[in-house]
C-alpha cells in the first residue's frame, strides 16, 4: 500500500469551469481506483487562475511568488499529475503553457500524467495529442496512453466516462510502478540539470567534473596532448 500524492493542474478560468470539471472527474477515478487497489491518495489542486497575478514576474524575471513557489513544491513531491487546459483559438491556453514554460525543465522527469483538454467544438480534439503531449514529452514526463478531451457534446456521452476510467487506471498502474522514483534513484544524473533546478532541489555539486578541473587551474585539454599541463609534471 502506498500513499500517492496526486497533483491537479487546471487552467480553466471560469467558475465553475468545464476544464476543472474534467480534471476533477479524472482525479476522482484515480482516487477510487487507487483505493480499490489498497492505496491512499492525497490530492493537491493548482488552479492556475490563482497564479495569474504572479505570472508577469515569473515570466519576465524568473521571480516566483509565494503561490508559484507552493505550486512548484507540490509538483516536486507529486507521484502523478492530472493536467487540463481549455483550448483557445485552436491551441492550449496561454496560461497553461506559460506555467509549464516557467517551471524547471527537470522538475517533472518520469512522472506519470493524465493529459486533458476541453473545447467548445470537437474540431479541437487533436490539441491534446499534438500539442499537449509534445510539451510533456519535452518535460520528460510519462503521459498515459489515453488522452482526455471533452467538447460540448462529450459531456453527455458515456464514452467520455469510459475514457476517464481508462486514463485513470493507466495513471494508477504507472504510479504503482514507481518509475519516476526509480529514474530519480538510478539515472537522475543522466538528465541535464543546472544548479538549483528541479524546483531548488538540484543542489549537488560534482567537484570532479571537467569544468571543476578547469575552475581549479586545470586544463580542458587532455594532459597527454598538452605539454604545459601542470598535471604532467
Amino acid at each position: 500500500m502506498t500513499d500517492f500524492r496526486l497533483v491537479i493542474v487546471s487552467a480553466g478560468v471560469s467558475d465553475p469551469s468545464s476544464t476543472r470539471l474534467l480534471a476533477d472527474r479524472a482525479t476522482q477515478r484515480v482516487s477510487s481506483l487507487a483505493e480499490k487497489r489498497g492505496h491512499t491518495v492525497t490530492t493537491t489542486v493548482i488552479d492556475l487562475r490563482e497564479l495569474l497575478p504572479e505570472l508577469p514576474a515569473a515570466m519576465s524575471s524568473q521571480l516566483l511568488g509565494p503561490r508559484f513557489t507552493r505550486a512548484v513544491d507540490a509538483l516536486v513531491r507529486a507521484d502523478g499529475l492530472v493536467v487540463a487546459s481549455p483550448v483557445y483559438k485552436a491551441g492550449l491556453s496561454g496560461l497553461f503553457t506559460s506555467f509549464f514554460q516557467v517551471i524547471d525543465n527537470d522538475l517533472l522527469i518520469g512522472k506519470p500524467v493524465i493529459l486533458g483538454a476541453t473545447a467548445g467544438t470537437a474540431r479541437h480534439a487533436l490539441v491534446v495529442d499534438e500539442e499537449m503531449r509534445a510539451l510533456f514529452a519535452y518535460l520528460r514526463t510519462l503521459p498515459v496512453p489515453t488522452s482526455l478531451f471533452a467538447s460540448t457534446e462529450d459531456w453527455t456521452d458515456k464514452a467520455l466516462g469510459a475514457r476517464i476510467e481508462r486514463a485513470g487506471r493507466e495513471l494508477v498502474l504507472l504510479m504503482e510502478s514507481g518509475f519516476a522514483r526509480a529514474v530519480r534513484d538510478e539515472s537522475w544524473d543522466s538528465y541535464q540539470h543546472s544548479y538549483g533546478s528541479a524546483g531548488g532541489t538540484e543542489l549537488d555539486i560534482d567537484l570532479s567534473s571537467d569544468m571543476m578541473r578547469l575552475a581549479t587551474g586545470g586544463s580542458l585539454r587532455d594532459s597527454d596532448d598538452d605539454p604545459f599541463d601542470p598535471r604532467r609534471a
Partner: peptide, 12 residues
C-alpha cells in the same frame, strides 16, 4: 530594463 512591466514594486 529587465524587471519593468513585470512584478509590482511591492512584490519586488
Amino acid at each position: 530594463p529587465v524587471y519593468g512591466h513585470g512584478p509590482s514594486m511591492e512584490d519586488f
